[in-house]
Design a protein around this nucleic acid. Structure first.
Lengths: 110, 110
DNA sequence: AATATATACATAATTTTCTTATGTATAAGA
DNA sequence: TCTTATACATAAGAAAATTATGTATATATT
């Protein structure tokens, strides 16, 4: 509903940060976690999430491990060493971006 | 150089906010203002800016006024009434987005 | 005088990154 | 039985950038 549109470019940062905190997670779990943490304000769609996970894996930032739970497939993702480094970078970039936007939007506080 | 990529979707907010503060501005001026305010960290490319201005104008959020200064063309943009309202909305959305991202990225402070 | 940089606009091709729609399949709850 | 939840996936389309060009004038540098 109040699905405040994702600013494009932030999804990877979200994924990496969550994996940095929770060691390993599967896709569906990520969507639920984001929903919970943002009290339903942000909904990660599957059409965005799964391609993003595949890409991060292809780039060597994530490792994947398939498991079967309750006769259903789960793909657990975890950060590689490179992925952990990239997480730091992405978080710095986000913090920088927020600072920059605040400088633009509220120059008096800058 | 350290051209921290624009998070897609934030350019309109930047334009509207600057016009809200400066009454009327022309395109090139906006690129310079952003560069100055962000100490060179954010560079608005012309390929992004001009189409964005044209679109905001087409949507009725901006009015345009052509001027000739030093024998060179300038297109001054200013907010319409609708544009002013939309600026408020966009700024609220940005603040909301920043809060949301901070909840995800730094859940302890949320 | 010639050349480079700054000012000032613009558009086209391409890429990135979403949304929306659709599909498959199993488990649990009404 | 039917709906909702769980769990993956991909394709089509849209949005919004980047990158590459192009035009033209003014100013600064060599």
């Amino acid at each position: 509903m109040s699905n405040s549109k994702l600013y494009k470019g932030s999804l990877n940062t979200i994924i990496l940060k969550l994996l940095n905190e929770h060691d390993k997670m599967y896709g569906y779990e990520i969507t639920q976690k984001v929903k919970a943490l943002t009290k339903g304000e942000l909904k990660i769609t599957e059409g965005a999430l799964y391609p993003a996970l595949h890409k991060l894996e292809a780039e060597g930032l994530l490792d994947v491990e398939v498991a079967k739970v309750d006769n259903r497939l789960r793909k657990y993702y975890k950060l590689t060493e490179t992925g952990t480094k990239e997480t730091v970078t992405k978080l710095e970039e986000l913090a920088e971006y927020i600072k920059t936007m605040q400088a633009l939007v509220n120059p008096k506080l800058a």
